[in-house]
Nucleic acid binder design. Structure first.
Lengths: 253, 253
DNA sequence: TGAATAGTGTCTATAAGACAATATCCC
DNA sequence: GGGATATTGTCTTATAGACACTATTCA
């Protein structure tokens, strides 16, 4: 790895120094922050915690916490979701590592950001059962995959200003999942096991924040071979019920 | 940010503890490793350093080093490229953060991986002028954007086994630039300022490891509006010289 | 003049968008 | 039956691949 300092010809010695004398190199704190997202009511939503301490008191923050020495980053993200939102078995993926020296005024903290996707039922259950969790509705002020921070609103409108660089983390999450939609069946993380094509299209439209052509969407999705008809149909919908599909577990790649 | 431990209701207090008493929380070391890539001779190549110390003595590693407390991650990547390869003004982008607890047998080290792209002339100049740098030719054992570690060969063939998880970092870099090629003019980082369409196509083919349709490539590239004819042509090529193009600086986005 | 690649034009196959027609459920 | 959406089929348009033809340079 050659993790040596610049003018030192011996990487290993330096590394051992750092290992045996923690004071030799200052080390940053490393946190994992998770953008837990769901799609409903025509918008992406995130789970937030309101800060009651300085800095950024009164602003909203993503669930996060310091990593432990014996867990991987992804395990830390999973642990945080379990502990802060009592959600297990959630799809998580690493997003980006934020490391501006002054992103936290107290000390140097790196944030390894993850995003997670759950379907609305589980999302809302966490929101109602776990103390302190609040809802943030994402308003994306840019188009396509341009990128940049998002704005966050409360359930009844009104701003929810984000703490630290968490609006950037959310923006990065939106950008990432918009990009992944093109080539990856990411949408099924945001739906129950069985779903109609219209529901899938609504999820896509919510993520992309633009209407999609119904016929073309239908054809494209069925052509991927990732959807499988269940033979069942939705019911009690006041109109012709649509067939329910499920995502195929990719077997041989 | 709520960087609190699980069962602690006061994130800030914990953070202050960590800040004022570094022993309260163990912190990992954080390194930046850079996959410096170039495309020539029909393959992607990386700059490597041979390890002469344990662990992984005799294996090859990417240039890397610990971050400093006063620099951002991207600044650290730039500093490493200057110090280790005397390359400045290189395009770098964050790739992924590797954090397996046992990725380094000596201690917990997170590696924030970056990739960098330079054109062959600068790459080879670094290789020849900077002591200790060696050449790695990437062999990608998977197709498309499947992902996974790459194999690395020396300039005259023969394996160059990579240290730590650096084969995974290189694999992630290849996967990323393959993906970006579709929607981003990433190729121009690997070319001189003026270049022909054929050269651009060769870069794309090298990155994707598959032949591209010439007519279609031409049309697609010119349709992006990112290429600008210089009016000049290549010369002394033994055949009709092609027009030289340059990339347009995206003005209004 | 010939070798070799650049660059243009045209045809075909495929995928996306538009739209119409029919099907099916609930009320 | 009426309302509403599902599902299928057809037509049009845009784009990618294939291929043929002309253009231009150097040896």
């Amino acid at each position: 790895m050659a993790h040596d300092d610049d003018d030192t010809p011996d990487p290993e010695e330096v590394a051992f120094l750092a290992a045996y004398d923690p004071g030799a190199f200052e080390r940053p704190s490393v946190a994992v922050d998770v953008a837990l997202l769901s799609a409903f009511d025509g918008a992406l939503h995130a789970l937030l915690l309101r800060r009651d301490q300085h800095p950024h008191r009164g602003r909203w923050a993503l669930p996060g916490g310091f990593i432990r020495m014996d867990e991987s980053l992804e395990e830390a993200a999973g642990r945080l979701l379990r502990d802060k939102a009592s959600l297990a078995q959630v799809f998580v993926e690493q997003l980006f590592t934020f490391g501006d020296p002054d992103r936290d005024p107290r000390m140097r903290v790196l944030a390894v950001a993850y995003y997670a996707l759950v379907h609305p039922a589980r999302f809302k259950e966490a929101l109602e059962t776990v103390e302190g969790l609040e809802l943030g509705r994402l308003v994306v002020p840019w188009e396509g995959e341009t990128g940049g921070p998002v704005e966050v609103e409360g359930p009844h409108g009104g701003d929810r200003p984000m703490a630290f660089d968490h609006a950037d983390i959310l923006g990065m999450a939106v950008k990432r999942i918009r990009g992944k939609l093109d080539y990856s069946p990411i949408g099924f993380q945001l739906l129950p096991p069985n779903f109609t094509l219209r529901e899938l299209q609504e999820v896509h439209e919510t993520i992309l924040a633009r209407p999609l052509n119904k016929d073309s969407f239908r054809r494209r999705m069925l052509a991927t071979g990732l959807l499988e008809a269940t033979g069942e149909r939705e019911h009690a919908v006041g109109h012709r019920p649509a067939e329910l599909y499920r995502f195929v577990r990719r077997s041989a790649v």
